[in-house]
Nucleic acid binder design. Structure first.
Lengths: 180, 180
DNA sequence: GGGAACATGTAAGTCGTTACATGATTAG
DNA sequence: CTAATCATGTAACGACTTACATGTTCCC
């Protein structure tokens, strides 16, 4: 059984707050869940059409002017979103290219590995910075938004994982260099 | 440009140690890098054929008896592996279904979210246990293997991230339940 | 007038999983 | 003899990315 796409549910989730066009949905994804989820137009527009066929959203062609289709979630759509939210997340097969390069590190020499780990450390530290900054910015600009708690939680997991990666990279560098 | 498959390099990496059949490679992947990487036969066998066409591995048909093709890495293959090991890992687009469910949690009710987070906490704790046990088992059974350091490092990142997820889940549960 | 942003979509191609098909060998 | 393991592969399908194509509207 092929793993099911979660694109429809991202769209339903965002349309639960307010009706939007496909283009606006793309922007909303980047703004709100962009730090842990992304969609391309090639996924988004076909998914919207399918959602409409299923009756989970309704699209209104804006008459006159620029071509625009504003999509709104239906009662059925809300129901299906709630059903999906109750399901346990399907386990993602873990894949880390960095770890592959660590594991086979001996075949390229420890200097290469040190280089990779240093870059990874920098990257992880930058991500910690970026997510910390993001959280502060949004928390101060929209301190009363009701969904703020949930949003902050999503940023927090990203930050904790980035911190774990940074700590690990430091540890790994010590283990490699200390051994030489 | 489409993202390049890393399957060939996993195979090259494992064949760097010793020649193997496709079937043995599958088992070796599970044993060694299975906690952060997996391959299916549907990827593996075609990849081996392509690697042979490129001259990065050489396959020897076992004459007589059961049909077996033992693959060995070539000098060219080692070169290409080293080249790949020097390249920075291509950034993986982050996708977390759990975070999606947290972010849209309000649409299903906090009780659903608590359920999801509790399951996630249990899962993360189990993973910490499993990886800790794995590290101890291998470290004690093969204490002198030269590649042990590298292997332990890969397990360690997994463990740290699982710990971060567990800590986060606890924090999230407090944030949700404390708010009610 | 021109460039940025708004807006919708498709075509081609890769990646990857799952399920199926087939058969030989070995251990009990 | 028979079940597990060893062994190789393919077909079908779905997910996803990238690049392309096209046109409008707003702001300077």
């Amino acid at each position: 059984m092929p793993r099911r796409s979660r694109t429809p549910f991202v769209l339903l989730g965002l349309l639960s707050s307010e009706p939007m066009t496909g283009y606006q949905l793309k922007a909303a994804i980047e703004r709100s869940v962009g730090h842990f989820w992304m969609e391309s137009y090639g996924q988004l527009y076909p998914a919207l059409k399918q959602l409409e066929q299923q009756g989970w959203v309704r699209g209104k062609d804006q008459a006159g002017g620029r071509s625009r289709i504003v999509y709104a979630i239906t009662a059925r759509g809300r129901e299906e979103l709630r059903r999906w939210l109750r399901e346990p997340p399907s386990p993602t097969p873990p894949r880390s290219e960095l770890l592959l390069k660590v594991f086979f590190g001996k075949f390229a020499g420890d200097d290469v590995l040190v280089q990779q780990l240093t870059t990874a450390l920098r990257g992880a530290e930058q991500e910690v910075q970026a997510l910390t900054g993001l959280a502060q910015m949004v928390a101060s600009s929209e301190p009363d938004a009701p969904e703020l708690t949930y949003w902050l939680l999503t940023v927090d997991l990203g930050r904790r994982i980035a911190e774990a990666r940074a700590d690990w990279a430091k540890h790994a560098l010590q283990a490699i260099q200390g051994e030489q």
